[in-house]
Protein backbone atom coordinates (compact mmCIF):
# COMPACT_ATOMS: atom_id res chain seq x y z
CA UNK A 1 0.00 0.00 0.00
CA UNK A 2 1.17 3.47 -0.81
CA UNK A 3 0.97 6.07 1.88
CA UNK A 4 0.47 9.20 -0.19
CA UNK A 5 0.95 12.80 0.88
CA UNK A 6 -1.94 14.92 -0.43
CA UNK A 7 -0.61 18.45 -1.03
CA UNK A 8 -4.09 19.89 -0.45
CA UNK A 9 -5.05 17.94 2.71
CA UNK A 10 -1.43 18.39 3.84
CA UNK A 11 -1.16 14.93 5.35
CA UNK A 12 -0.47 11.32 4.39
CA UNK A 13 -3.47 9.21 3.44
CA UNK A 14 -3.99 5.59 2.49
CA UNK A 15 -3.74 4.64 -1.17
CA UNK A 16 -7.37 3.47 -1.28
CA UNK A 17 -8.46 7.10 -1.08
CA UNK A 18 -6.68 7.91 -4.36
CA UNK A 19 -7.01 7.10 -8.06
CA UNK A 20 -4.17 7.31 -10.56
CA UNK A 21 -5.03 9.27 -13.70
CA UNK A 22 -2.02 8.64 -15.93
CA UNK A 23 0.84 10.77 -17.14
CA UNK A 24 1.02 14.36 -15.96
CA UNK A 25 2.09 17.55 -17.76
CA UNK A 26 0.51 16.70 -21.12
CA UNK A 27 0.05 20.01 -22.90
CA UNK A 28 -2.88 20.36 -25.27
CA UNK A 29 -1.73 21.76 -28.64
CA UNK A 30 -2.34 25.49 -28.51
CA UNK A 31 -4.09 25.56 -31.87
CA UNK A 32 -5.63 22.13 -32.58
CA UNK A 33 -6.78 23.20 -36.05
CA UNK A 34 -3.23 24.00 -37.10
CA UNK A 35 -1.43 20.96 -35.69
CA UNK A 36 -0.62 17.87 -37.70
CA UNK A 37 -2.38 14.52 -37.29
CA UNK A 38 0.81 13.13 -35.78
CA UNK A 39 0.93 15.87 -33.15
CA UNK A 40 -2.75 15.45 -32.32
CA UNK A 41 -2.36 11.67 -32.17
CA UNK A 42 0.59 12.05 -29.81
CA UNK A 43 -1.43 14.33 -27.59
CA UNK A 44 -4.46 12.04 -27.47
CA UNK A 45 -3.03 8.55 -27.40
CA UNK A 46 0.69 8.26 -26.88
CA UNK A 47 2.09 8.14 -23.36
CA UNK A 48 5.54 7.66 -21.90
CA UNK A 49 6.38 4.37 -20.26
CA UNK A 50 9.71 5.13 -18.62
CA UNK A 51 11.81 2.83 -16.51
CA UNK A 52 12.58 5.19 -13.67
CA UNK A 53 11.13 8.59 -12.86
CA UNK A 54 7.54 9.14 -13.96
CA UNK A 55 5.38 12.19 -13.31
CA UNK A 56 1.77 11.17 -12.79
CA UNK A 57 -1.59 12.76 -12.26
CA UNK A 58 -3.54 11.43 -9.28
CA UNK A 59 -6.83 12.42 -7.70
CA UNK A 60 -7.69 12.31 -4.01
CA UNK A 61 -11.03 10.72 -4.88
CA UNK A 62 -12.18 10.07 -1.32
CA UNK A 63 -11.05 13.19 0.42
CA UNK A 64 -10.63 16.67 -0.99
CA UNK A 65 -11.31 15.39 -4.55
CA UNK A 66 -8.49 17.51 -5.97
CA UNK A 67 -6.09 16.48 -8.70
CA UNK A 68 -2.38 16.71 -7.99
CA UNK A 69 0.92 15.34 -9.30
CA UNK A 70 3.13 12.55 -8.04
CA UNK A 71 6.73 11.88 -9.06
CA UNK A 72 7.09 8.14 -8.78
CA UNK A 73 9.82 5.66 -9.56
CA UNK A 74 8.37 2.91 -11.74
CA UNK A 75 10.94 0.34 -10.66
CA UNK A 76 11.11 0.83 -6.90
CA UNK A 77 7.58 2.30 -6.65
CA UNK A 78 9.06 4.97 -4.41
CA UNK A 79 7.07 8.20 -4.37
CA UNK A 80 9.69 10.92 -4.51
CA UNK A 81 7.42 13.94 -4.20
CA UNK A 82 3.86 15.16 -4.62
CA UNK A 83 2.99 18.65 -5.78
CA UNK A 84 -0.08 20.70 -6.62
CA UNK A 85 -1.61 21.31 -10.01
CA UNK A 86 0.16 24.01 -11.99
CA UNK A 87 3.46 23.43 -10.21
CA UNK A 88 6.58 21.93 -11.73
CA UNK A 89 8.41 18.94 -10.23
CA UNK A 90 11.63 19.61 -8.34
CA UNK A 91 12.78 16.02 -8.87
CA UNK A 92 13.14 14.87 -12.49
CA UNK A 93 15.18 12.21 -14.26
CA UNK A 94 17.53 15.02 -15.35
CA UNK A 95 17.92 16.46 -11.85
CA UNK A 96 18.70 13.01 -10.46
CA UNK A 97 21.21 12.33 -13.22
CA UNK A 98 23.01 15.64 -12.71
CA UNK A 99 22.95 15.13 -8.94
CA UNK A 100 24.73 11.84 -9.47
CA UNK A 101 27.46 13.55 -11.53
CA UNK A 102 28.01 15.97 -8.68
CA UNK A 103 28.74 13.01 -6.42
CA UNK A 104 25.27 12.96 -4.86
CA UNK A 105 24.56 9.32 -5.70
CA UNK A 106 20.90 8.34 -5.58
CA UNK A 107 20.09 5.09 -3.85
CA UNK A 108 19.90 2.43 -6.54
CA UNK A 109 17.51 0.20 -4.63
CA UNK A 110 18.23 -3.43 -5.41
CA UNK A 111 20.53 -2.33 -8.21
CA UNK A 112 17.47 -1.82 -10.40
CA UNK A 113 17.53 1.90 -10.93
CA UNK A 114 18.79 2.87 -14.35
CA UNK A 115 17.62 6.46 -14.54
CA UNK A 116 19.71 8.64 -12.30
CA UNK A 117 22.01 5.75 -11.34
CA UNK A 118 25.73 5.84 -11.98
CA UNK A 119 27.15 4.22 -15.11
CA UNK A 120 28.92 1.67 -12.94
CA UNK A 121 25.66 0.67 -11.23
CA UNK A 122 23.95 0.29 -14.61
CA UNK A 123 26.84 -1.85 -15.85
CA UNK A 124 26.69 -4.04 -12.75
CA UNK A 125 22.94 -4.58 -13.21
CA UNK A 126 23.49 -5.49 -16.84
CA UNK A 127 26.32 -7.79 -15.80
CA UNK A 128 24.11 -9.51 -13.23
CA UNK A 129 21.39 -10.05 -15.83
CA UNK A 130 23.80 -11.43 -18.43
Amino acid sequence: MFHIYCPYCEEHREEEEFHPKGQAHIARPADPDACSDAEWGDYLFFRDNPRGIHHELWVHAVGCRKFFNITRHTVTYAILETYRMGEQPTITAESLASGEKAGNVQAASGGQQTVGASDAAVASVKGAQA
Binding site: C9, E16, E17, V62, G63, C64
Partner: peptide, 10 residues
Protein backbone atom coordinates in the same frame (compact mmCIF):
# COMPACT_ATOMS: atom_id res chain seq x y z
CA UNK B 1 -12.72 16.36 10.58
CA UNK B 2 -11.74 14.38 7.49
CA UNK B 3 -13.43 12.77 4.53
CA UNK B 4 -12.15 9.23 4.30
CA UNK B 5 -13.05 5.64 3.57
CA UNK B 6 -15.29 4.19 6.23
CA UNK B 7 -16.23 0.52 6.10
CA UNK B 8 -15.30 0.54 2.38
CA UNK B 9 -17.80 3.35 1.86
CA UNK B 10 -17.19 7.09 2.14
Amino acid sequence: GVTTTFAKAT
